[in-house]
Amino acid sequence: MSETQTRPANTREYRNGKSRRVNVARQRKLQRLKEVAKEFAEHRAAMVALVFLLVISLIAVFAPLIAPESMLNVTKLLDVPHFAPPSWEHPFGTDHQGREIWVRMVWGARTSLVVGLAATAMSMIIGTVVGLAAGHFTGLAGGIIMRVVDFFLVLPSLILAIVLSSVLSRGVLTIVIAIGVTSWAGTARVVRSQTLSVASRTYVERAEVLGGGHWHIISKHLLPAVMPLVLANTTLTVGSAIIAESTLAFLGLGDTTQQSWGTVLKNAMDVSAATSGYWWYIMIPGIAIVMVVLACTLVGRAFESITNPMLRRN
């Protein structure tokens, strides 16, 4: 601590001082990360949810090892009973073509998670950029951006997603785009209000008076301030994106060549499973969706409750 009692004129000491400070900054970040992890561990339900999500992710990644793709090949399943209720032989029952529901679930997890994550990433990026712009820029530009956000906010996102996915060619990418493009407005709104509250703080005006331009203010002050909020929002959005994916698949807009939990439910409805007593055909994919989405919600809310007081303290 005493090294700067006299002013460090030569560069060696200057560098020492600088690298030491970089270390301090890194330590502080690490410390904060540890605090967040510790606080997160306090939320028991969220911890269980996180572990559950990790397990599901592993299943999705190793699907080909757990259940070889041939198990889905209808032509090889001629001797398997159709609509077999759950039993030791068929743990989750079979579908109308004799496929094991559990195999379809394992493969469906891939589509559901991939679409959920990709659509969320897209929605978060658009939402953050637009929200920052709407909060930072004033005058005509800000007004127009706000008008657009408001417009997308009230538009029925599912219907717009239906329109997009029925117009574009079928495929996983289409579903991702349809969900990503229609679900960013909520994020933009949250980011915008946070940006506005940060932008009204004096330190942003101070940066402006010091000579900082738009880029400096956005990258150095506004973005770091909204990031925790965006991250907490991300997990919540993954949940709703998974629901949206299954809904589109259920409406027959999914990629018919890929397994998805929504597709399983669509098949179930097409064979009138609800009124014919094939309860496992409906229960199993539904419960899977609810559990994954609930897990995302719990994790997201835990993050939110950790970051929120932080935002307030700031």
Binding site: R7, P8, A9, T11, Y14, G17, K18, R21, V24, A25, R201, T202, Y203, R206, A207, L210, G211, G212, H216, K220, H221, P224, A225, R313, N314
Partner: peptide, 28 residues
């Protein structure tokens, strides 16, 4: 409110210098 709560004193003070691309000894 005039200081960014996430940024250390050094960074707050050097902010103006960096914006203006100060070419002297920043630390000093």
């Amino acid at each position: 409110a005039a200081l960014n709560p996430k940024v250390s004193v050094y960074e707050s003070i050097s902010e103006g210098l960096r914006i203006r691309k100060y070419d002297g000894d920043e630390y000093a």
